[in-house]
Design a protein around this nucleic acid. Structure first.
Length: 592
DNA sequence: CCGGCGGTTGACATT
DNA sequence: GAATGTCAACCGCCG
């Protein structure tokens, strides 16, 4: 094999950037004669991950921006988007393009490990050398787990201790200044099209989907697909993707040394919009249009020079990145069980409503759920659609759906409300909604935060419960945020903005909006209509706290044999009004 | 094995 | 208006 002039494929996945990409820099250090920067459309991504139209758009923004940056370095180059599953594409591609090396950034989620393991195997069979470099997190997640005595990182303390053993967080690398030519791009092999019998994205896909029309796309030019090609609805988010934008946002943040050095997450306002109180860099970290180490060291540089008193992890800006590493470490260690309660050694078992259906063969969640309680289903539906009758919750859910982003504390509020602090619905239901709608959806962080907020892992102070009335008042007494996202309440007196059902009917009429019904009705005559609250919150809070206390005293975790075989039901009192009854739930169909 | 303390982001009353 | 204490009482961590 002519390794003297390597012909390299650089496989972009969750690292859509040129700055600080250890894997890309390594690929270039091979002095390739030929370099193909490619993306492959993985059917697992296209049909099995929940991706709303806003996140699709953000991804395409990132791909377009990256492709333009590659072309700026070499007019012959670009991001070559190939429409086939990597597991079937690569053997054909290695042969067709005479490839000697395949380089990509390490990914440690359960599916990615499986996929990449297969690709590495295929490369070995083809005599292609594979180089994998970590770069997605501050620390290599596997190394972090290893230094945490081989256990999942479940507290920020553990991350800091394990991180200290690993050593300094790598300094960012410069973007390449030149790029080798790509070789010939003929593809004289047959495209293998994926089976489309399942489509997790039928929701955002309201048009004809044509992702796999041809290997190099409809025009045969390997172009980044359009929204129309993917069949996705137009995005409603104002947030835009791409490395150029990410670096500009970062520049603006670090230019404000007070903001950067004294940032304390719990003090930032979840009610702030235009501009938001936090950085909005999370979607860029997800798609890799910003390197987390670039972010870390740029912020640390400001902190080191700062004359005043700087904030410290975990509440500081760099602390936020440590939490991200914590969740990646837990995910890397627990693999498929991380994303579910069932079989998860770290996740408490709580007999929530609407529990996940479990595939009895694999022990994995199927994406469907049991409807054990009609009232809980109605509450979940109203929560999802932003018509709970609690303006703070509804405003957040509407912002989430429209813009694909809500403030971290807003996520706390709606997650607590759906699970342990209101509806007593399974955190996995909430995580699925966030998975679809968030532009910054990062499986590790989303799952970890849902476990945190539902007090099933990472956190356990279930008696600290967010009030949909008191909590937002800490930042926004006037209710400006609610008025923006629930415009039917725009003219309500601040006194009633978080509990409009308390406003006298005469006032409701003079403010043009009646408080009634369940949110199905939007207007009545000349009046707008906003729903009544779907339950009495203080009552629900008490019921939930009591039920949590009981479930904690039973003390089961997801991998307990009694959870696995369904006999957990005997440990809960079915007759009590404490939401501990379980007529339905895991494991699927095996408890009777 | 114990007790005390702190835990990214509670609510409410009091100072 | 900010800071502190109390509520009831969870866990992980440290000595």
């Amino acid at each position: 094999m002519p390794t003297s002039s390597p012909r390299v494929i650089y496989w972009f996945r969750t690292d859509l950037r040129l700055h600080d990409s250890p894997a890309l820099i390594h690929a270039l250090s091979l002095s390739p004669s030929i370099l193909y920067p490619i993306w492959t459309w993985d059917p697992y991504y296209v049909y099995h991950s929940r991706i709303g139209s806003n996140r699709w758009k953000f991804l395409l923004d990132c791909q377009n921006n990256l492709s333009a940056s590659l072309t700026a370095l070499n007019p012959k180059s670009k991001l070559f988007v190939i429409r086939e599953a990597p597991q079937t594409l690569f053997p054909k591609l290695f042969k067709a393009w005479g490839i000697t090396h395949l380089v990509f950034e390490k990914d440690t989620d359960a599916y990615a490990r499986e996929r990449d393991g297969r690709v590495i195997e295929l490369a070995r069979e083809a005599g292609v050398e594979v180089i994998v470099k970590p770069g997605r997190t501050l620390y290599d997640s596997d190394e972090l787990v290893k230094e945490n005595k081989g256990k999942p990182t479940m507290s920020i303390n553990q991350v800091q201790a394990a991180g200290a053993k690993i050593g300094d967080i790598p300094r960012p690398l410069l973007a390449p200044k030149s790029l080798p030519d790509p070789g010939e791009t003929d593809l004289d092999f047959k495209q293998e099209r994926p089976n489309r019998d399942h489509d997790a994205n039928s929701n955002p896909r309201k048009e004809i989907e044509n992702t796999y029309s041809a290997l190099a796309g409809p025009n045969g030019d390997f172009a980044v697909p359009t929204v129309a090609e993917l069949g996705i609805q137009e995005a409603s988010t104002p947030h835009r993707g791409g490395e150029t934008i990410a670096l500009k946002i970062l520049d603006e943040i670090v230019a404000d040394s007070d903001y950067t050095a004294t940032f304390e997450k719990p003090k930032t306002a979840p009610t702030a919009f235009e501009p938001q109180a936090t950085t909005l860099l999370s979607p860029h970290l997800h798609f890799g249009s910003l390197s987390c180490r670039e972010f870390y060291w740029r912020v640390q540089g400001v902190v080191d020079k700062y004359k005043g008193k700087a904030s410290q992890p975990p509440t500081s800006l760099t602390g936020q990145l440590l939490f991200r590493d914590m969740y990646f470490g837990a995910q890397a260690s627990l693999n498929y069980s991380f994303r579910q309660t069932y079989n998860n050694s770290q996740c408490r078992f709580i007999p929530w409503h609407l529990p996940s259906e479990i595939d009895s063969k694999s022990g994995l969640i199927t994406g469907k759920y049991h409807i054990d309680n009609q009232e809980a289903l109605e509450w979940f539906t109203r929560w999802r659609e932003g018509r709970t009758g609690f303006p703070w919750i509804d405003a957040l859910m509407r912002q989430l759906k429209q813009e694909g982003w809500i403030h971290h504390l807003g996520r706390h509020a709606v997650a607590c409300f759906l699970t342990r602090g209101g509806c007593y619905v399974d955190w996995e239901r909430g995580a699925e909604v966030f998975e679809e709608w968030l532009i910054d959806h990062e499986a590790a962080c989303n799952i970890g935060n849902w476990q945190w907020l539902s007090c099933t892992a990472f956190y356990s102070q279930f008696y600290r419960c967010y009030s949909p009335i008191a909590f937002p008042q800490k930042w926004d007494k006037e209710g400006k945020f609610v008025r923006r996202y629930c415009p039917e309440l725009a003219t309500f007196d601040a006194k009633y903005i978080y509990e409009p059902w308390k406003a006298p009917i005469a006032d409701q009429k003079s403010w043009g909006c009646l408080i009634k019904g369940d949110g199905e009705q939007n207007e009545e005559g000349k009046f707008m209509v906003y729903p009544n609250p779907m339950f009495d919150f203080p009552e629900r809070r008490d019921i939930c706290i009591r039920a949590m206390k009981n479930a904690y005293s039973v003390g089961l975790y997801g991998d307990d044999p009694r959870v696995v075989d369904g006999s957990w039901r005997k440990l809960f009192n079915n007759a009590a009004e404490d939401l501990t009854e379980g007529n339905d739930g895991p494991p699927e169909g095996e408890w009777s």
